[in-house]
Design a protein around this nucleic acid. Structure first.
Lengths: 161, 161
DNA sequence: CACAATGTCCATTAGTTTTGTGGAGTGAAC
DNA sequence: GTTCACTCCACAAAACTAATGGACATTGTG
């Protein structure tokens, strides 16, 4: 479950936009530098975000990027989907399209549950939530789980009752 | 959030082992063919699973593989961790080690929540659960969520109140 | 003890993805 | 018409994915 640089960078840039005075355009170079990111890489991603309707752009002096919608109307999942495609894929196949035989027959349920778990977090958290540092209650409950902030040891194999 | 072939294949092979009569060794070739998987690829993965203590092996005639522990003592998360490393990583960094400044300061919470959500599913579901098709209650609740089995449209951007 | 069956290990490979960089072109504003 | 900033296209090194192939080691049997 690897979250690529492209998505991480995009979210940080969009948060920077969300924190800017409403209606002001910000240059790509400034957005990248504000978060210490590679300028050209971020600019390429911004073009993608524009084509996907997440931001709008304006050329020339006074140009730059703006959020296409208010920050509380853009979920983290939206950014994942426009840049990476489906939230969960198994060998490039969406969970509901996987097929298994014999002892693995019910494996599909696990993948669908994984996707549902990702949706629970990523669809409910908006840019405005992250900016404010106040996540929706179900997500806060996940953060309150025992050891949520602790890594499992390398090669950890959970003990069971 | 891509689940690679290696993990998918490994789980299917381990489920095949879990379904076999207790104590019987099964050849790698047979395990692969039972699920229609590339034989050599699966055999390589089995060596990895052996080194990581998930299965045991026996050479020679009458040789093959066995689960190292009962199927209800092996969680899906265990297989992820030994083959893929940490459940969630951001640009190769574990969620608790990410650092963000300014408007992105609270982004770390989102990644920790994503990991917690994955743990909720993957650490609680064992091979025995999948074999029986009976998942733990919290996971079943995820599956009962509205549209859990429905894909979001391509480029879907969730509408919000 | 030879031999066949089976796991172990190492090397290689084609294709794709990731994470970038560089530069010419295009549109808008003053 | 010049400047500024976005846009588009090309390129590329490195890593990863999903395999394949073959030599070697070990075990059990005749």
């Amino acid at each position: 479950m690897y979250i690529p640089a492209k998505v991480d960078y995009a979210i940080r840039v969009l948060l920077t936009l969300a924190a800017a005075p409403a209606g002001s355009a910000i240059r790509g170079e400034l957005l990248a530098k504000a978060q210490g990111l590679p300028v050209k890489f971020v600019e390429n991603t911004l073009v993608e975000l524009r084509r996907q309707g997440i931001v709008t752009s304006q050329r020339g002096s006074e140009g730059g990027y703006r959020l296409a919608r208010p920050a509380d109307q853009i979920a983290v999942a939206d950014i994942f989907r426009v840049l990476e495609g489906p939230l969960a894929e198994v060998r490039g196949i969406r969970p509901e399209n996987t097929e298994y035989d014999g002892p693995a027959a019910h494996l599909q349920q696990v993948w669908v549950a994984v996707r549902a778990a990702l949706r629970l977090v990523l669809e409910s958290v908006t840019l405005a939530d992250v900016l404010a540092g106040e996540l929706p209650t179900p997500v806060e409950e996940l953060l309150a789980m025992p050891d949520a902030w602790e890594p499992r040891p390398i090669g950890h194999v959970a003990p069971r009752r």
